[in-house]
Simulated scan of single mutants.
Amino acid sequence: GDSLFAIAEYHGEQQLIKVDVASGDYERVLGEEDVVNEFDISPDGQVYAIVARPQSPRGIYRLEGENLQPFEIVNRALMADIATGSVEKHSYTAEDGTVLDTFVVLPPNYEEGKRYPGILHTHGGPWAQWDWRFNAESQLFAAQGYVVIMPNFRGSWGYGQAFTDALVGKWGDIDYRDSMDAMDFAIEKGWVDGDRMGVYGWSWGGFLTNHVITKTDRFKAAISGAGETLVVANYGHDEWQRLWAEEPGLPWLEENRDLWDQVSPFYSLDKVTTPTLVVGGEDDWNMPILNSEQLYLVLRRRGIPTQLVVYPGQGHSLSVPSYERDLYERYRDWFGQYLVN
């Protein structure tokens, strides 16, 4: 054909675009607050897409003209009686002048002028981005009365190759500083009480959380999910062997050793004072559980309040409903203990 359809990430959107094969020009078919997860086109040209929105989980929609019409919304009845927090996207300026985006999820009954306990929710990847899709975890915290801050720090996708490459060789550095600037922005806007803040994330978000707690004591509690601690310990074991050879480079070569040490939170765990819940899956080959065990053991030996929860038979994400419920209850209780009670 003369054109093709594709999903593209762009500045906190996940769009469906149509590309002219000959010229390379493209037009946006779906985007903004409609986050396209998957799509298909019938033989007669009808576009169907799985779409998520800020206040609604994924559903199947049919594109009619320029309008999306519901085709099958599985969770409609479930969500009908659930109050969700409003989701906003804001731009803020990092310390070095770079303009960045952050999503903000407000409590369902948010009152203008009132400061709320705040949670920094760091995304995984780092080759990913926060976007407009329904985020169950952030909505869970918003329902508990928190303002959730979700920055697209440098290294995220959707902002161009240079933006993504800015994190190369600077793991736990530029992403950390961009995230701190996002929290400063939230305090300046009057949303967040700077004396009642927590930080958490999963995968790269857990890794970044581990860096955060070694660099600042401004957070009263942290949750590290499936993160990394002593990075070199993953060499030869996890699924990232090609990446390790490229960045930080082969670990036995003397010229690479400083970078391996620099990107490892392990060597700065003596600075941590933040109570930290550590969680992960027993069979995780992406971010092996040994990283969580290392973090927990150091904090426990140093007398820092901590717990380690390992979910049996689980990989990089949890698939057993009772485990997911247990995880979210632990999230709620951990932050409730240190940020509310």
Rank of each mutant, 00 (worst) to 15 (best):
G280F: 01
G1F: 04
E324V: 09
E112S: 11
L230Y: 05
E88N: 12
D238S: 09
V29W: 03
D40E: 13
G190E: 09
Q161C: 00
Y61W: 15
G236E: 07
N67L: 09
A143I: 01
W191L: 08
Q314W: 11
Y92I: 03
D2P: 13
E254T: 11
E188Q: 14
D270T: 05
M287R: 03
P151A: 06
I304S: 04
H237D: 04
D178K: 00
E247N: 11
R257N: 02
V212S: 01
V231E: 02
V272A: 07
Q144L: 13
Y10V: 05
M287A: 15
N152F: 01
A186H: 06
Q294M: 10
Q139F: 02
A8H: 11
W127Q: 14
A245R: 14
K220I: 00
Y296P: 00
R301A: 15
A182D: 05
K189S: 11
R301Q: 15
G118V: 06
R325A: 09
I174R: 10
R218E: 12
L327C: 03
V74G: 01
P126Y: 02
W334E: 01
L230T: 00
L230W: 02
G65F: 09
D20I: 02
G145L: 07
D2E: 12
R325K: 13
F153H: 12
G145C: 09
V263P: 00
S203C: 10
L68I: 12
R196F: 04
S91F: 10
A6V: 06
Y331K: 05
G124S: 12
L308T: 11
V279N: 00
A8W: 03
Q294W: 03
E13D: 15
F103A: 08
D34R: 00
R76K: 13
